[in-house]
Design a protein around this nucleic acid. Structure first.
Length: 524
RNA sequence: GGCGCCAUCGUCUAAUGGUUAGGACAGCGGCUUUUCAAGCCACUAAUCGGGGUUCGAUUCCCCGUGGCGCUGCCA
């Protein structure tokens, strides 16, 4: 372990898919750990599997990290002193180090074909043995190897694992962990296509990039002894290890697609806020666990943490060992909480892409942008110059959003619930009926309202005034719902919505009158 | 199969030898109420099993059970 030196951590995803929500949590913990001590956080792309590369995945990773506020000090798109930060651009390096291992006798060429290896595996399984390379190529004589190399036969480079050694290491999350080298396979380090496997590349890069702490998920725990051996072969000092718990599906399997949304982009599109996602993810597998006195002082066990507070309180030692199920309900709760904290102007800006998507407002520019990429006009200024649909102002949108702010869990939900402010509501006339009131009563209520409203001046069309004037009328009835329900229903066309007076104020006198008239017509 | 990791309410977790086992989400009930939310109040709900160690175990040790991970020229 490196002591007394700058903490440098890295997040090293492979661009074989869009940014996974579990990866984002790993990145978060990695970021927090480095940044809380003034260390550096690095992004490295591990694109050594040509077959699984996905186009656009790298972009999605950059965007996702940026969205979440996990800014890296060095990385493929920002550069840095230890670049390149993309493994496919470092092939010569891996080759050089692999050859060094051969020279020192810590690795050897293997010319076995896929079929040979597969057969070997099958035989071992049949004999109930652990599948393991039988080292037949290690027994090749020097001349044979030389001959095959000259003939340019396909080959890989395998790591030579010593026998009967116990590799013990201390993991920051798990404590002491030990593996017997007899259980380890002679791992392929350099593939026949010249690309390194993860095992070689990760060790070489972590060393060259001066990574002090390796943080990664638990699935890597069993390969850690191989990595430690490689550090030993190279004569390098190994970093500190921290194997983080996995994020799980509700059925406790490794979180994956098919069992729900797992891509960060999915959550961005749905309108989750980065603050909520970060807070939620931080507490999935970690908890500050305040001492009793501090707890008593705080009054309650605080679960709302900003990035700043996380930076202050996070600690790898307190990360849980067990995997955590991704619980969407709690995310929703966090998101709703954070949505209520956002200043209205800002929230409105965030909602605009969703309104455009729902065709509620139409900008003049080409709006075929991607919400997940978060590109497009978001400022008030941009927005006011780009509307075409019946002179809807930013202010109008703001008022509509304000009414849905507390009632929505996501931005996309606001985009939906706010619809009736922008288009005539379509509904069945049965919606207008309050409990078991008669059609006549409802109609009478609406007619009364029609009259009251036409008497109110445009200027006085505020919810307080409306309430002051309409409530006494409603109180005259056996149940004020007889007047208030049909009013609300007529204005919103919805079973559930904000209150009638607030809606009326936003719609304005003219639209309010029209919608009441429309409702009366429905009853005729 | 082998190896490893893990195990507190349904879920996320707090409490590391002494608590009525705490909180949050969800759920349920109530208050509020023109609807739905929100808010406020209350309730339900957990230490996987068995052995030890100890005056005392959620906590330490062992065994079992269960879950998960790895066992690829994937990462």
């Amino acid at each position: 372990m490196k002591l007394n030196s700058l903490i440098r951590t890295r997040f090293a995803p492979s661009p074989t898919g869009f940014l996974h929500i579990g990866s984002l949590r790993t990145a978060l913990y990695t970021y927090l750990f480095a940044k809380q001590s003034g260390g550096q956080f690095i992004l490295r792309l591990e694109d050594t599997d040509l077959e699984r590369l996905v186009e656009g995945a790298a972009e999605a990773i950059y965007n996702g990290l940026k969205w979440a506020g996990l800014n890296y000090d060095e990385g493929p798109d920002v550069g840095g002193p230890f670049g390149p930060y993309v493994q496919s651009k470092r092939l010569d390096l891996y080759k050089k180090y692999a050859n060094e291992l051969i020279k020192n006798g810590n690795a050897y060429y293997c010319f076995c074909s896929d079929e040979t290896l597969e057969q070997m595996r099958q035989e071992q399984i049949a004999k109930k043995q652990a599948p393991k390379y039988d080292r037949r190529c290690l027994k090749l004589r020097d001349e044979e190897v030389k001959q095959k190399l000259t003939a340019n036969e396909p080959r890989v480079i395998r790591m030579k694992i010593p026998e009967k050694r116990i590799i013990e290491f201390t993991d920051i999350v798990r404590g002491k962990v030990a593996y017997n080298t007899n259980e380890l396979d002679d791992q392929v380090l350099l593939k026949s296509d010249g690309y390194p496997t993860y095992h070689l590349a990760v060790v070489v890069d972590d060393h060259l990039m001066q990574i002090s702490h390796v943080t990664r998920t638990e699935e890597w725990l069993p390969s850690t002894p191989k990595h430690i051996l490689l550090y030993e072969y190279f004569g390098w000092e190994a970093p500190a290890w921290a194997h983080l718990p996995l994020l799980l599906n509700p059925d406790k399997t490794k979180m994956s697609k098919r069992k729900g949304d797992v891509m960060v982009g999915d959550y961005i599109k749905k309108g989750y806020l980065p603050e909520a996602m970060i807070n939620f993810l931080a507490f999935l597998g970690w908890n500050p666990g305040l001492p009793a006195e501090a707890l008593a002082k705080a009054g309650t066990e605080k679960e709302i943490y900003s990035m700043q507070e996380l930076l202050k309180d996070f600690s790898l030692e307190k990360v849980h060992k067990a995997g955590a199920i991704f619980n969407i309900e709690k995310l929703n709760w966090y998101n709703q909480y954070y949505m209520r904290q956002i200043p209205l102007d800002k929230l409105t800006e965030l909602c605009i892409p969703y309104l455009i998507e729902n065709d509620l407002i139409v900008p003049k520019f080409d709006h075929s942008f991607d919400i997940a990429a978060m590109k497009g006009p978001f400022t008030v200024k941009d927005f006011e110059t780009c509307l075409t649909k019946e002179k809807i102002s930013f202010d109008y949108i703001k008022k509509a959003v304000a009414l849905e702010q507390e009632r929505s869990k996501t931005l996309s939900e606001i985009g939906e619930s706010v619809k009736f402010f922008f288009e005539e509501p379509q509904y069945d006339k049965s919606l207008l009926f309050w409990k078991d009131t008669s059609e006549e009563e409802i109609k009478k209520s609406l007619q009364t309202l029609q009259k009251i409203i036409s008497d109110i001046t445009e200027k006085k069309f505020k919810k307080e005034n409306l309430q002051e004037i309409i409530m006494p009328e409603a109180e005259k009835l056996s149940d004020r719902g007889i007047m208030l329900w049909p009013l609300r229903a007529a204005l919103s066309g919805q079973k559930a919505s904000p209150g009638p007076f607030e809606i009326a104020e936003v719609l304005g006198k003219e639209k309010t009158f029209e919608r009441i008239s429309f409702a009366i017509k429905k009853l005729d």
